[in-house]
Each structure stands twice: as structure tokens, then as C-alpha cells.
Write a protein that binds this DNA or RNA. Structure first.
Lengths: 341, 341
DNA sequence: GGTGCGTGCTAAATCCTTTTAGCACTACTA
DNA sequence: TAGTAGTGCTAAAAGGATTTAGCACGCACC
């Protein structure tokens, strides 16, 4: 029904003023000496016509499109991705912006395409997100393009948002220590001797560093460190089973992620050990999984939504720069019990 | 470095022609009588300057923005959401379009805002997506706006994309029947007597209809139907436990979704029954979960990605209309065994 | 009575494309 | 020799906003 959108000219005409005046009034320009009467007439006219500015036309003149580009390697794989997107959408909405989401699959050609596509649309800034934090290659961009790296880093773009993995790693250790665990703690998923050269991601190494630092300052050592190549339930199951066959003094498992912990649960159950009475378990990520397990898995979560939010906020601030470390929330459930005295 | 984007005028100047000619040549206008030489010069100039058209400016003139709006109630909750988005992005990319993603949380006010925001940006069409298929209320839109409902329906907008739940439900039944199960089958999550008035969603009722239809045409009946209010692991666990205490003739569980099945696994394990030797399990959705379980859960999946894809394809077709039912894929894992002869 | 100033408003340019209408020229026809 | 047709190209408008520069008027002042 609504035949055509009203334009500024329509509003001006209805108010009996020039488009210039209408524009100034609707934009609340200060220092303009238009009469109160003119204000009233324009506002009434805009209201009556349901006027909304055409953002493309405005952008042509002002170079602001109230739109940001979100270019991600993967969108659908993990809950991580959607959390980042959700956070970005929230912050954008709060700032009256809107988000163009593109996926590259990590393919440089698609990435170049994606960049071109958002640039063609004159976005106000671009967020580059990766699902596994890594150093991301980014092709050349016109100077002055605002860029924030999300869960990624790049030397050319100083602004980045990352989870505070070091502190998160330390917190996981402290959870066990606070419950009285000082011995029989195994680290599942990481063994520096084996994996020295296996670069996983920038953030994982910080997670490990945080873990080791906290262990050291508590004066503790792991009773075992199981290297796990693929951090998936199957591998977690296998590694835990092997560990339990070798030793009978395991009292706590510090798992590098929830999927490993999931596998560990199964191995523990099979071995007739119950969580947390016999063995406490703590891990990382706060996957959907962690809530489904019985007993619920205590885990140090990845703050996806917060990260997405902070990234957009940084992007829309005057000069996005510096590294933002977002705290990882401790999600307490029921997988840690007090160590036997 | 790149100081400013080259404009069409720059290209024209470099080629020694008018912007008109440059535009026509670059857009491959037929029936124009510009010389081969002119073509060559313009193309060379565009190449040299790295010219890319400003889509906003073009849109101003042509009313095409190569952009679609994707308005969803939830973005981050389920893997479902990201699957839909991923599919939409893929199809859009293939068509040279780009996607504006907005989230409304199901709140009518935010929904109205979202619609206004995409309309302000002159999108070529809008997709309304919901995470639990339902009849979605949509405020008035300017006539002629292309709209496709995704996982939702609305009488005012005839085009919609839905999973083929009827057929999917039937397939789940057939999986059991093909394995020889003809008795001792329990339906977990649905009992018509109890839930007659509890409207879950348009698609769930079709799923149920498909299940019942297939059971009937096989001449079978359920040995038990457990109503489950919230389709989460905890409830699935509880319901299954209760069922197993009541009866000892259960040979197969048809679960309404994977999370119920997950809870059922736990109850079965506790009862000393193994999947699939003692009890076969089949369910719906193909959650991430389903792959993590041991043994892997055979499930009739929701075709998220396909659905997102089809929705955008429909939207960009001449006249989006009609209901598109996307087949639900059977994902075979290891949770169904042959029934004892 | 000329100058200066404040007041209230607008014409026109600009952003970058596409598109309509038509110009200027040559070659050919009648 | 005027008229027609074809060829190769362009001027200018349009699309919807913002912004710069400045007009016209009334009033006070010396």
C-alpha cells in the first residue's frame, strides 16, 4: 500500500520550507537560527509522512553509512562464532549501526572478495574475526579504514580483542586449589615436551602459560600431562582411559576444553569413578555441552558475546587501537568436589 | 596509502571519454555503439585505477543494493541459527549479494526497529527467520518488498522455507522398522493425550504427524508415549528413567530431539542397558551433541544450511512465493541395531 | 542616510552513478 | 542539394541527502 517512501523534499514541501531547513532541523544542527515555528512544522511534517532518511543517500554525502562489516572465517561451526556475532549485533544496535556479515572459510580469495564487497558499500569499519585465534593475513586496505581484529591478531592492525586466556588458565588452576586439590592433578590435552612445536593458536599458548604460572606460584606440579592431538571427545576418552590404566592416584582433571572433558567423563564412568566424588574435573570454553553433562561441568568460559560487543565498541570509538583482553567467566557447576583431607 | 577510491569520473577522464560512456561500457550495456577502441581504453583505465563502483550511489539511481536483510529472533542460541545464516550467506555470495544480519530477540519493538533499519538501507529483500518455527507477526511493510519467511510462516507473505518434518518424522520410524523393530518402541517427548493443547510449533506437529502416519501404515503402535515438557537432557533423563522403571520390554526409543536422546543415553547406561545392543535410539535435529555421543546417535537432521540457502535463492528469484519444504537428511551413526529376531 | 549587525531562511553545489535525450558528423540516397 | 540514416559519443537530469555561501529584511546607531 505505502506507495513510496517520503523524501526530505516531501517533508520540506509539506512544512513550507526548503530542504536545507528541513535537513538542519531534523538533524538537530546547533547554531542554526531557524524559528521554533519552523521546527514544529518540520517535525510535524516528518511525523505525518513517516519520513525516514535514506541512509545510502546520506552516506554519499557524509561518508558515514552506520554499517559495519563483520568478516569471519567461519560462521556456522561452533557456538563461538554465533556468540561473537551476537555480541557484535548487540553493540552495533546500541550504537544505531547495522552489521554486514560475511564468511570466507579462511580462503584468501573469498577474503579478498569479502573485503571488496564491504568496501563497495562504504562501511564505517571492518571486524576480522577468526574462530581459532590466530594471526590473520589481511590484504591491503585503503588507508583510514577502521579495523578491529576479533579473536585474532595482525601486526598491521593494532586493535584487537582477545579472551584473557592467561588469567583464565590461572583461574582454572585456582578452582582446583581452592577445593583443596594439591596432588593427583592431571593436565589433559597439553604436554610441552610433545607439543613444543605444534602451534595451536596464540590464545592456547597463553592459556597454558597461565596454567603453568598458577601451578608454579602454588608450588604444585601435574602428576601427568596427556598430549591430545585433536581436542575432541573421542580423543579425550582415549587419553583419559589410558591415563587411568597407568595410574590410580588421579584426583583431578584439568582439561584443555569441554570436549575433552566430555570424553573424560565417559572414561571415568566406565572405570567406575564418579565425578566429582572420586575425580574432580574442570575445563575451558563453556560449550553448550558443559551444561548438558551430569554432573554439570565447571568450566572457564570463552566470553564470546562480550568479545563481539567489545570489538564493535572499539571499532566505533574514535581511534580503535590496543589489545583488549576480555575476562573469561568462571562457570561453576558441579564437577569439582573438595579433595579428601 | 590508497588515498581515495577512484570514481567513474576518474576512469572516464583517464580514458578520455565521458562518464556516460564509461558507465555504459563497464556495465556491458548492449546496443550501444561505442567503438572497440573506447571499450579498450575504459577497461584499461578501470583496471589501472582499481575502479569499483560505489554501490550506494548506484543503488540511489537503480533501486538495487545487492544487499538482503536477514532478521532473526535469535542468532546465538542454537546451532540452528548459525546454520541458517551460513546457508543464507553462501547463497547470497553466489548471487553477488551481501547480508545484513539483525537480531530481535522476538521483541516486537526491536523487530520494528530492525525492519526500519534494513528498509532505510534499501535492501533488495528481507528474510524473517525464527529459531523455533512459528507463525511470526510482521509489521506492515511497503508494498513490493520481497519477503521470505524462514522456518516460519505468515499468511501475509506466501513465500516460506520449512524443513520437511512430515517426511522426516516418517523416516525416523522407518529407520527402526528397517532394522526389524516392530514392538517395544517408545516415543519420548510426545503424548497426544497430555499435550493436545500444548502448541509447540508448526513444525513439531508435522513431525508428530509424520511419525504417526508411518507407524500406522506399518501397522505398529508405541508401547509407551512419554510426555516431556522441556526437551532438554535433564528431562529426557528423568522420563527415560521413569519409563525403564515401569517396563522392561523397551527395545527402541524414538526421541523427539537429540537433547532428549542425550538424557536417555544416560538413563539407559545407569540402568545397565547398552545402546544399541539392548535398546536402539533414534532422534531428530543432528545437534553437535549427536556426534559426540558414544555410540554416535543416528538422527534425522534439520537441514539448516540448505534452508538458509533456499530462502535467499527464493528471495532473489523473480517472485518469491509458495512453500518450500527442504528434505531432512538421515544421519546414520551407530545407535540402531537389528531387533532380536 | 549610510553602516553594521542580527535574524531567518534558501539556492546551489556536492557525493557517485545511471539513463534519457540528443548533438555533430559522415555517407548515402533521391 | 536537400533529406535520411547511421555512427560515436556526451550533456544534463535524476536519485536523496548534507553543506557552503549568502540573500533579504528589519533595526539600531552615529
Amino acid at each position: 500500500m505505502a506507495s513510496k517512501r517520503a523524501t526530505l523534499a516531501d517533508v520540506a514541501r509539506l512544512a513550507g520550507l526548503s530542504p536545507t531547513s528541513a535537513s538542519m532541523i531534523l538533524n538537530g544542527r546547533p547554531d542554526t537560527r531557524l524559528s521554533q515555528d519552523a521546527h514544529d512544522r518540520v517535525n510535524a511534517a516528518a511525523e505525518a509522512l513517516g519520513y525516514r532518511p535514506n541512509i545510502a543517500a546520506r552516506g554519499l554525502r557524509t561518508d558515514k553509512t552506520l554499517t559495519v562489516g563483520f568478516i569471519s572465517d567461519l560462521v556456522a561451526t561452533t557456538r563461538f562464532a554465533s556468540g561473537l556475532i551476537k555480541g557484535a549485533l548487540e553493540a552495533a544496535e546500541a550504537a544505531g549501526h547495522v552489521v554486514l556479515v560475511l564468511e570466507t572459510g579462511g580462503d584468501p580469495a573469498r577474503e579478498a572478495e569479502a573485503i571488496a564487497a564491504v568496501l563497495d558499500r562504504q562501511v564505517d569499519g571492518i571486524i576480522f574475526a577468526t574462530m581459532r585465534a590466530r594471526e590473520l593475513f589481511v590484504p591491503d586496505l585503503p588507508a583510514g579504514t577502521a579495523v578491529v581484529m576479533l579473536n585474532a591478531t595482525n601486526p598491521r592492525f593494532p586493535a584487537s580483542v582477545l579472551p584473557d586466556e592467561f588469567e583464565g588458565g590461572a583461574q582454572a588452576v585456582r578452582l582446583l586449589v581452592q577445593a583443596g586439590h594439591r596432588s593427583g592433578i592431571a593436565l589433559m590435552g597439553q604436554n610441552d615436551d610433545v607439543e613444543r612445536d605444534a602451534f595451536r593458536s596464540a590464545t592456547v599458548s597463553r592459556r597454558v602459560a597461565g596454567i603453568r604460572s598458577a601451578m608454579e606460584s602454588e608450588g604444585l606440579t601435574f602428576v601427568a600431562e596427556e598430549s591430545i592431538w585433536l581436542w575432541e571427545p573421542d580423543e579425550g576418552y582415549r587419553a583419559t582411559r589410558a591415563l587411568l590404566e597407568r595410574r590410580d592416584d588421579i584426583r583431578a582433571l584439568l582439561c584443555m576444553n569441554d570436549r575433552i572433558a566430555f570424553g573424560a567423563y565417559q572414561a571415568l564412568t566406565e572405570a567406575g569413578l564418579s565425578v566429582p566424588q572420586d575425580v574432580s574435573v574442570v575445563s575451558f570454553d563453556n560449550d553448550e555441552l558443559a551444561a548438558y553433562l551430569r554432573p554439570g561441568l565447571t568450566t572457564v568460559g570463552l566470553p564470546h558475546v562480550q568479545m563481539g560487543k567489545r570489538a564493535v565498541e572499539a571499532l566505533l570509538s574514535d581511534h580503535p587501537t590496543g589489545q583488549i583482553l576480555v575476562p573469561m567467566p568462571v562457570v561453576l557447576r558441579s564437577s569439582i568436589a573438595a579433595a579428601p583431607a
